[in-house]
């Protein structure tokens, strides 16, 4: 049996659901339920467990991590603060914070960007540092816009990190080129 717990993480709206779709289409074992239905914000689904409320269970120490060994689950960034000791491989998504907030606003209404942008930035850095510090976490950082621009190349990189468990061509079909419209102009020419 696979000794790792596999996690897709990142700030909310950073492309975590897209990465879960990629892994699912690529043939990886992915655990999710139907507690959170697809909607206009995530038309292809959220690929989450327990309606996305895993963070509550992690904070309480009641999430059955052992049950998901060998499978990918989605735990957004803040939840990684509460990961119990284990053996983890984490695909961590990063994305332009303004794009993240654009997407958050569509989902949950106006955001005080001046106040929240530094906080999101701090949370992102805090979690990356946490992953770096923990000996039981192996991680890869994947930039959302790199996936949109060149899916096969980025997915091949993820596949290598995972030891070759993916069918890269199939996985790349999960990336909708229309998403490129949401990339901010400055980032299109990076």
């Amino acid at each position: 049996m696979d000794e790792y717990n596999y996690i897709v993480s990142g700030l909310e709206r950073s492309g975590t659901s897209m990465m879960m779709q990629i892994l699912y289409r690529g043939g990886a074992a992915v655990a999710f339920d139907k507690s959170r239905k697809p909607d206009v914000n995530n038309p292809k689904g959220y690929f989450e467990l327990e309606g996305g409320k895993i963070i509550n269970r992690l904070m309480e120490g009641t999430f059955p991590m052992e049950r998901y060994k060998g499978k990918f689950i989605k735990i957004t960034a803040y939840g990684l603060k509460f990961l119990p000791e284990g053996k983890y491989k984490i695909v961590y998504m990063t994305r332009n914070l303004d794009e993240i907030m654009d997407s958050m606003e569509k989902m949950s209404g106006p955001i005080d960007r001046q106040a929240e942008k530094p906080l999101l930035d701090k949370l992102n850095r805090y979690i990356i540092r946490l992953m770096e510090k923990r000996d039981d976490i192996d991680y890869i950082i994947v930039k959302y816009n790199d996936v949109i621009r060149n899916p096969k190349k980025e997915i091949a990189r993820v596949n290598e990190f995972l030891g070759g468990m993916l069918d890269v061509d199939s996985a790349a079909k999960a990336v909708d080129p229309k998403l490129y419209r949401n990339v901010r102009e400055g980032d299109k020419n990076e």
């Binding site: 909310e12 309606g51 996305g52 409320k53 963070i55 958050m104 209404g109 929240e116």
Partner: peptide, 8 residues
Amino acid sequence: RLRALGYL
């Protein structure tokens, strides 16, 4: 923010 987005 997490509550507003349905994650908590």
